[in-house]
Nucleic acid binder design. Sequence first.
DNA 1: CGTTCGATTGAGGAAGATCAATTAATGTGG
DNA 2: CCACATTAATTGATCTTCCTCAATCGAACG
Lengths: 256, 256
Amino acid sequence: MNPLHLQAPAPRPAAFLHQAGVPSSMEVGDPIGSRLRRLREQLDPVRRVVHAGETIFQAGERFAHLHVVNAGLFKLINTSADGREQVVGFKFRGDWIGFDGIADGRHKSDAVAMDTSEVWVLPYEQLLARSVQQPGLLGELHAAMSREIAHDRESMMALCTLPADARVADFLRYWAESLAMRGMRTDEIALRLTRAEIGNYLGMTLESVSRALSKLVRAGVIAFCSKGRRDVRIPDVEALGRFVQRYLVPASATLQ
Amino acid sequence: MNPLHLQAPAPRPAAFLHQAGVPSSMEVGDPIGSRLRRLREQLDPVRRVVHAGETIFQAGERFAHLHVVNAGLFKLINTSADGREQVVGFKFRGDWIGFDGIADGRHKSDAVAMDTSEVWVLPYEQLLARSVQQPGLLGELHAAMSREIAHDRESMMALCTLPADARVADFLRYWAESLAMRGMRTDEIALRLTRAEIGNYLGMTLESVSRALSKLVRAGVIAFCSKGRRDVRIPDVEALGRFVQRYLVPASATLQ
DNA sequence: CGTTCGATTGAGGAAGATCAATTAATGTGG
DNA sequence: CCACATTAATTGATCTTCCTCAATCGAACG
């Protein structure tokens, strides 16, 4: 029996088929684009351009605005009281940034642009006021927060249950999927991250990331593009998923 | 320079003093109690009693209600598509449960009672309707989601940056703090979790948990109460924090 | 009172970290 | 444009941490 349940719960319902990232109010084709379009119509937000390496806010600053990524790419960096630093997330086009500041009015992380990017600045109080009039807007906000919570849980799970190589494979899969969801090329992707950053995000050293990538190349699941080892070629995203699975067959792993 | 920033960002603002868990709308004394009182007045929710081992919902079920813990204690369990299972969080009195189901209308985890517990059942649509009229209610909802996101990030960080022993110490500290915040005794705590569950939550084996606890006992930071090794005596919660710190001095650790 | 489940502890092994050397890409000033 | 400096990535050798396997012990329960 399932060791995590103190007592065996009722059997799992049949409709148990979910994976993160599938948006709810789905317009076929381009859910994220249409999400953004609706937001722009409803809020006509101020746009702000941020260049690579610049932040939209830093941990500790007063929270007053939420941001939505309209172009580019961000990483979120947390710093613990004792100075440990970690990349805790990435934000792509259509993602919201800044939820963790709502509770006590202070941002909890640095939001750093990884490329020239554009965010829409949404004054939180104004957003609330408009949400009250436009229920669709409120739904959008809640869905975004909900997705973030669900995704963070998936990350925790990957950290806890996957060995290093599989974690790297899973990370690439996640990245490719994020791009695909936004209608971007997924066969050749530019990570714009150092091995150290990837390792920091995945809880391993940069050497382990490098070795894992080399292994994935040897396994034929990925390849590096022409010059530089920063750009990754992924002929078949599904193959990454299968690579992750292969690691789970030995210790099939319900736990223990 | 900080290796995680592509370029050096502006200096960190002085008001950089945060740690998870300090609620925003703080009534001195009992922030969680007053939060619950307000909720009850505003919503007069249906109460539901759940016994140890029973679930309030399971992953895959249709999402229709949020829940607020009024008494007892829950664990959230995620299951990946391939069958990996993990405890991804705990919910104490005053915590909300079910946010991860909002986005696509399906719950993403099992919510299992760890003790006889009472939750308030809040029909999501009704909650939205009321929130539109009562802005304080909406603020409460958002604050709860925000806290959850912030806390999950802290968990990710512990998983990625702390060695096993420190992770166990940090877990006990978190648990004691959660109890303290709710006005409960913190010098003797009943975990109601097996080593396997703790290990699963912290990404390590049950043996490692056991060894870590023994080490904490030997270090004089904790002790086991009388009969059984389930109940932990924590004479000084601060000492747990210092124990965690001690692990960080060697590899002082900004990364790399 | 024996059975079962959880916890502890030890021994050995494996995954990943650390240390170190080399190579590749990027950038800089002449 | 090239020599040189700098930063990132790779790869190997070694070491540490944590996992795995196994035996023992204790508590709880029928």
